[in-house]
Design a protein around this nucleic acid. Structure first.
Length: 442
DNA sequence: TTAGGGTTAG
């Protein structure tokens, strides 16, 4: 970023700040470090063109600001700057990055693309398919696919991946088998389809077929296969994939490394997980989380906590999942006071809003420490939202295991009370829960 | 300047 700013200064001093090529290059290069800086450059352009808008829209989406991307698109239309064939895929990608509420915007963009004559662009069609399929509108995705006059391997793969994500394994297989050409991405998408649908042997069968047909796997493929090993609980197969990766010179990137750690941990070899972790040249938050969780569930609570404290030294910021792992480790290792301290760090220092899982572990810790009043206070102070019923349930659960009938009854009454405020809960379900509780109390 | 596949909790 420092070098980029120096270059930017030279550009200004040499009177080149209106050169569209230089300016757009600056925008896209700076966006991954500071979207604010990119916006600053963009706002200084005297007469922005379709091209500069496209670049700015793409930069926003690629850097966690899809909402701004849509806003820019609207401003662009408002200013009368015409979108082109590049604009539409970028805007649809912004919709995909948002939640499914953006589907209406997506449809409107689709409509405008039809009106302006860009709807037959293969890049747009592929992106639209992706949008509809990812938001569960399988018929719409299919309709785009069926209307395409030319389909590339990307079109077919998008269809396969979309069906797989919706659990439509049979339909995905049908499309996959009908593909005229398959590349490593297509094979990987299909392998993951088998894994996600609990058919891990099918995934390995496909891996064999892929190699017979002369397509080599890459890191993505191996990650899918490692998930299959994890699902099967097969340390032997997992080791084989690991050896395959080493023998074939695969780069130990964060995804492959993390999948290996997770596989070793869940297949019972925490030693191998640690070995992989220590040898990784680069780690993501998922890598840390996987390793901490692994140590925690294997009864190495102290090691998990030590590793957690190391995160700070390498500037890795813990997230909500990290604390689920740490709290779980504390529960398993009976580190009551440490756990309570971490919960404090999480909420007060890291500003992480506790989820149901955090409450579950924290109630367990408080229960073990006999701090029932604190547990009650904690549940009582949760603002009214969707989570509070779950939290009282978590407390009820802990009360049950610790034979804490009195507080359990309070928790139970709160659950019934909150349900009665919730119209979406049918009365017979409340009755049923009431019945269950009475029986448990007896 | 554009399109598709990947890791962590529960």
């Amino acid at each position: 970023m420092r070098h980029l700013k120096q270059i930017h200064a030279h550009i200004i001093r040499n009177g080149l700040s209106n050169d569209p090529v230089l300016v757009t290059k600056l925008i896209s290069l700076s966006s991954s470090h500071s979207i604010d800086y990119s916006t600053l450059i963009f706002n200084q352009i005297q007469s922005p063109t379709t091209f500069t808008y496209n670049i700015m829209i793409r930069s926003c989406t690629n850097n966690a600001a899809p909402h701004d991307a849509l806003l820019l698109y609207l401003i662009m239309l408002h200013r009368g700057i015409p979108p082109d064939k590049f604009t539409f895929p970028f805007v649809i990608k912004a919709c995909i990055a948002l939640d499914s509420l953006a589907i209406e915007t997506g449809r409107a963009v689709h409509a405008l693309a039809v009106k302006t004559g860009f709807s037959t662009d293969i890049y747009l069609q592929n992106t639209l398919m992706d949008l509809y399929l990812k938001f569960g509108l399988l018929d719409c995705g299919r309709a785009v696919f069926d209307k395409m006059r030319v389909r590339s391997v990307v079109s077919w793969t998008t269809m396969v991946a979309g069906l797989v994500a919706s659990g439509e394994l049979e339909a995905a297989i049908e499309v996959f088998e009908a593909m005229p050409v398959r590349n490593v991405v297509s094979w990987t998408a299909m392998i993951n389809g088998y894994v996600r649908n609990g058919q891990s042997y099918g995934a390995f069968e496909l891996f064999r077929r892929m190699q017979i047909e002369g397509v080599g796997p890459n890191e993505f493929t191996l990650v899918g296969l490692l998930l299959a090993c994890t699902e099967l609980g097969s340390l032997t197969l997992g080791r084989w994939i690991h050896e395959f990766a080493c023998k074939n010179g695969f780069e130990m990137n964060v995804f492959l490394g993390t999948a290996l750690i997770d596989m070793y941990s869940k297949c019972g070899s925490v030693e191998d997980a640690v070995k992989v972790f220590e040898e990784m040249p680069e780690r993501s938050i998922a890598t840390w989380n996987s390793m901490i969780t692994s140590l925690g569930v294997h009864g190495h609570g102290n090691e998990a906590v030590t590793l957690f404290t190391k995160m700070d030294k390498v500037n890795a910021r813990p997230d909500a999942i990290t604390f689920v792992g740490v709290l779980c480790a504390c529960v398993n290792a009976c580190m009551v006071h440490e756990g309570l301290e971490f919960f404090k760090v999480m909420t007060e220092l890291c500003n992480i809003v506790p989820s149901f899982e955090h409450y579950r572990y924290i109630f367990e810790l408080l229960g073990r420490a006999g701090m029932w009043h604190e547990a009650y206070e904690l549940a009582e102070n949760i603002p009214r939202n969707k989570l509070d019923v779950c939290v009282w349930r978590a407390l009820l659960r802990v009360c049950e295991t610790h034979d804490k009938a009195e507080l359990g009854k309070v928790a139970y009454e709160r659950i019934v009370e909150l349900h009665s405020l919730d119209d979406s809960m049918p009365p017979n379900q409340i009755q049923l829960q009431h019945h269950c509780f009475e029986r448990e109390v007896e």
